[in-house]
Every structure is written in C-alpha cells, then in structure tokens.
Design a protein around this nucleic acid. Structure first.
Lengths: 156, 156
DNA sequence: ATTATTAAAGATAATTTAGTCTTAAATATT
DNA sequence: AATATTTAAGACTAAATTATCTTTAATAAT
C-alpha cells in the first residue's frame, strides 16, 4: 500500500472540504465529514489535526465551528496533504529499504525506481485539491465506497 | 512504503541467491543469506517459505541443505517475488483505497494513478533477478546497508 | 450564567506487521 | 545407529498502525 489509511482518509476528507468550499461553504464540522464519508469521527479528528498543525487547515470550536482550508483549494497540492500525514519519505526511500541509497550509492534497483518515484511525486505535486474536487463533481465520482460527489452535495 | 519489510527482505535474499547462482553455487543455506544480509534468520526462513510455496524456490533439509531457484534467475521476474509475498493488490488498488474503483467507477484520482501504477507494474515485470544481480556485481552495489556485492562474493 | 455544540487531548483497545524462540522433521556424515 | 546440520512449523513477543472511548477546552446561543 502506497499511502497509510490515515493519509487516504485525510485525502478523502480534504476533497470533501474542497467540494464544500466550491459550494461557498468553506467551514464544515468534522462530524459532517465523518458521517458522509463513513469514517470514524475520532480517528478523522486526529488526522485533520495534523493538517491543522501543518497550517493547511484552520479550526474553530463551539457551535457552528468546524474546519476549513487556510488557502484556496486551487492553490493546495495533494502532496501537501500527503506530506502532512505520511511525510515525504515515500519520495526519498529506496524501494529495497536500504539507508543511504541514492545516486552516489545506488542499490541494484535504484535507477529504475528513481524514475517511477519521481513520476509519483510529480503526480501529487501537479494535482490541486480543487482540480480533483471539480472533476469529481463533474463526473459524479465516488469519495467513499458507496457515496458519489452528487450524493454528498444534494444531502449537504 | 510501497513494499512490506517481508517483501523487501525477500527481494534482497533473492538477489543474493541469484548472484550465487551465477557463481555456479545455486544452493545456499538460509543461515548464510541471513548472516550476509544481516537479516533475522527465522524471519527470513518464513519469507523464503513463501517463495518455496509459490514454486519459485526449492529447498532441501539436512547438511549441505539450502534453497535454490527452480528456474534460471534470468527467467524470473521481480514481480513474481513481490506477488508471492505481498500479492498483486498493489497493482490493482485504488490510491484512495476505494473498493471497486476502476475504469467504470473511477475515483477522482483514478486516471492519473492508473497510469503510474501501470508504470510500476511494468518495471517489476520487465526486470529479471539475473539482470539486477549482474548489474549489482558489475557496479559493486549494496544489498544490505553495509555490504556490497563484491564483499558478499569474496567472503562467500 | 447556563446549556449545547464543537474541536483538542489523552487513555485505552484492537488489529496488523514484524520479529523471536522452541520443537519437529528430514538428511548427510560418521 | 548416532550425531550434526539444516529447513519447517508453531507458539509466542514486540512494535506500529488503526480505531474507540472519555474528558477537557472553547465558543455560540439562550
């Protein structure tokens, strides 16, 4: 598995919040996100705290509280979410797990893997949350196993 | 992390055995592999049993016993080792972990990820154990944190 | 002020992965 | 036959990840 579950949930939640942002509803309660995406509320809270700690999101307590992005979703790249939760080791690590593997001291697999690893990094780097959220809305794609973007928006 | 530790260790061990195979020493004891690669003997034993169960390796007990590939390392692709240990889910799974995500029912990330995922699969599919072992020997590359292919061969 | 709502923080539990230890089975050597 | 060597198998332990539960802190509405 490329990304941890925490990171996957974090991305799904980010896409939900980004979609709401486009609907002119930048602040959403975590409970709403966890209900809609069928994720554990407490687990998701901890994950989102990592995004807040990283400065990607801001949060307010109390009634009408919730979370929101600190910047426009069009200016937030997917790699920022990944970085805040799983870190960037994924884009540095040797595929054989050898410490110090790199251009100077390559493992047998280094050259081939470095190319692929870069392609993955570029992909996360080049994709904004807004891009994904818009695409999801346009194509009525799914954000959880059972629920499409359309479902989410009409029951919001 | 793309591959589990078990899978990483399995690949390292496979490269070691492939290198020995080229030295006309197809059968090597597991203890030798675990010593040279600085891996836990018992843990490695279990991993190699998976390769044996998958038909990639054969084993003999008793003095002068050990493990060896059932086919020539040049005919064994890296993906076979990965498949035997981690399975092929990696090459099928949605990057957001959504069940059923695919061409018909894509998640917002599907198209971009599918391309990258295929590149990874092709890479594992196109690389033989012999190719990696030979390259490692030629370039004196490392198979464990501290030990190069040359070190391994001269102290064998 | 009191109450209700919401995120933060911390304790605990469950699951998966990683790793160790012990015993059994097979086989070669003597 | 007895012994030593080696893989196989199973029980057990440790660590990391995932998930739940409880309490606290902040804030808005009444």
């Amino acid at each position: 598995m490329l990304l941890s579950k925490a990171c996957i949930y974090g991305i799904r939640a980010s896409l939900y919040v980004a979609a709401m942002h486009e609907q002119k509803r930048p602040f959403v309660p975590i409970r709403e996100v966890s209900d809609k995406l069928e994720l554990s509320f407490h687990f998701l809270t901890k994950i989102l705290q990592q995004l807040t700690a990283a400065g990607l999101m801001k949060s307010y307590k109390g009634p009408n509280g919730g979370i929101a992005f600190t910047r426009e979703p069009k200016d937030i790249k997917l790699i920022e979410v990944v970085s805040a939760i799983d870190g960037l080791d994924l884009f540095k690590e040797c595929v054989l797990g050898l410490p110090g593997c790199g251009h100077k001291q390559p493992c047998p697999f280094h050259d081939k893997w470095a190319t692929t690893r870069e392609a993955i990094e570029i992909m996360f780097n080049a994709t904004s949350l807004e891009e994904l959220a818009t695409k999801g809305k346009r194509m009525n794609l799914r954000l959880s196993a059972e629920i499409t973007m359309d479902d989410l928006l009409k029951t919001a």
